[in-house]
Design a protein around this nucleic acid. Structure first.
Length: 298
DNA sequence: TTCAATGTTTAGAC
DNA sequence: GGTCTAAACATTGA
């Protein structure tokens, strides 16, 4: 699943192509995805009806992002909040050609659309927007207004955006100090700072020379400063590079996201550290594979 | 064939 | 309340 840079990149691509278009029709192939966001959600015919009725005919005015969520703003104040989770992806086609795709990496075999993993189809004024999701952890939730979204508290548990000016070293220090959990868990905790996932958490720790399995509360001010700077260096770089994709993530113009080439530790267990040459170690933190250099990360 | 792993989140257990 | 595990589900590669 995409982390912040991949979601941001998808947002930019969509914004360039679908703004101003009206939704002509919607096919919801898997009602479960529009019926809630919990693990135990069930398909809801009522929510599916509201989703289709609410968005059909509406005009797309903006696409924004909060944490790893995409927020589509429609005429009439209507909102659509989308989380891609592990395997969600959007593909927008116009005149039979892919104009935007992103989220989970697109395989060549998946370029024929719709395919068995296509869960929703939005027919727009000029093209067709497909939502594909193999594992179906993702969700697309409709809110009749911004007020409904607020009332639902959809974003209530999210912390600061890392690229927001409010995300200062002092704030970061405050949230790390209080935590006994492992540093990597805290970095990935969306209530502390949003957007970091398994890849970027490892990359940030490597750049800051701190071991991901340290207790967050044990970090010195200096180390916290290095982590803060690492986040502010890595995320914009990854966004500019088009995000990371292990397979074939592509940008709006069809070129490939290539931040994966920049990965220093993720996916490199057993290979040599670019900094000191020693062999990178693999471990598990909260059930997530973690790669780090035991020599230059303290 | 079976099993572990996959970029996420969160309900529930302790 | 903080922390950690398992689960939601499908596919791939060892």
């Amino acid at each position: 699943m995409p982390e912040l840079p991949e979601v941001e990149n998808l947002r930019l691509g969509l914004q360039r192509r679908i703004l101003g278009q009206r939704v002509r029709s919607i096919a919801v192939r898997n009602p479960k995805l529009v019926s809630g966001r919990g693990n135990l959600r069930k398909a809801s015919p009522k929510k599916t009806r509201e989703f289709i009725r609410g968005l059909t005919g509406a005009r797309i005015l903006d696409v924004t992002r909060r944490a790893k969520n995409l927020v589509f703003h429609f005429s009439g104040g209507k909102r659509l909040v989308v989380h891609l989770k592990m395997s969600g992806q959007f593909v927008y086609k116009e005149n039979g050609k892919n104009k935007v795709d992103g989220g989970h990496p697109i395989r060549i075999s998946e370029t024929v659309l719709p395919n068995p993993h296509t869960r929703l189809i939005f027919e727009l004024g000029k093209g067709i927007l497909y939502y594909n999701d193999t594992r179906m952890f993702g969700y697309l939730l409709y809110y009749p207004s911004e007020a409904h979204l607020d009332k639902a508290g959809h974003f209530r548990n999210l912390g600061l955006e890392p690229l927001d000016a409010a995300f200062t070293p002092a704030y970061f220090r405050g949230s790390l100090r209080a935590r006994k959990a492992r540093l990597k868990s805290v970095l990935m905790d969306q209530a502390v700072v949003t957007g970091l996932g398994n890849i970027y958490a490892d990359e940030v720790c490597f750049l800051a020379k701190v071991r991901p399995n340290r207790r967050a509360s044990s970090l010195s001010d200096k180390e916290i400063g290095r982590l803060h700077r690492a986040i502010l260096v890595i995320l914009p770089k990854a966004i500019a590079a088009g995000g990371s994709s292990v397979v074939s993530y592509r940008l709006a113009d069809g070129s490939r996201g290539n931040y994966a080439r920049e990965h220093k530790v993720y996916g490199r267990a057993g290979e040599k550290c670019f900094r000191c040459g020693s062999v990178l170690k693999k471990t598990a933190i909260n059930n997530r594979t973690t790669v780090f250099c035991a020599k230059c990360q303290k």
